[in-house]
Amino acid sequence: MANHHHALQHHFEDLEQQFESASLGMWAFLITEILFFGGLFAGYLVYRSLYPEAFAVGSYKLDVLLGGVNTVVLICSSLTMALAVYWAHKGERTKIVVFLFLTIVLGAAFLGIKAVEYTHKFHAGLAPGNAFSYDGPFADQVRIFYSFYFSMTGMHALHMVIGIGLLTYLIIRARQGAYTAEYSTPVEMIGLYWHFVDIVWIYLFPLLYLIGRS
């Protein structure tokens, strides 16, 4: 056998087979994720078409500025993630670590801004549950809008938190020199995951923040 790299697992013939398997596995996982969020998006679409005015009212109460800033933050984090993958291919240890770290910082910034938004909504009585106290027009359906808002962005935030955990793991491994020009599969796979989570937000932002604003 030509390839006896230390990262090669016993049941694969070579690193190429191992990489292809990881890659296919990750894509299959992302398809699963699409269906997972798909259930929420389907529900959102049903209720938005049932109650378009209420959804517009609810949407209007969201903070477009903070949401917009967060969109930019996430797009930047995708860039830093892509750069981390790029340097992982070259096996440049410090640069991998730096860009992974920047990605984490941007991800944390996103979550911080999100937390500020959540707090505002709680205080405004817009969080579903007993705390819900909005009683303007379409109160019940606005509540459904906010149910979707919190479940969708909450589920997205949960994915971000998991992503940050994975990036931390990558940093630890990268500092140990685990990723070289021949082998950087984990960086690439977790990169795919990170981009996926960003893309979900790219759909969430207009669907939640921008309806009825034209």
Partner: peptide
Amino acid sequence: FSIGIFNPKLG
């Protein structure tokens, strides 16, 4: 949290 998505009372 009675989010209302499946609750006919809230639409």
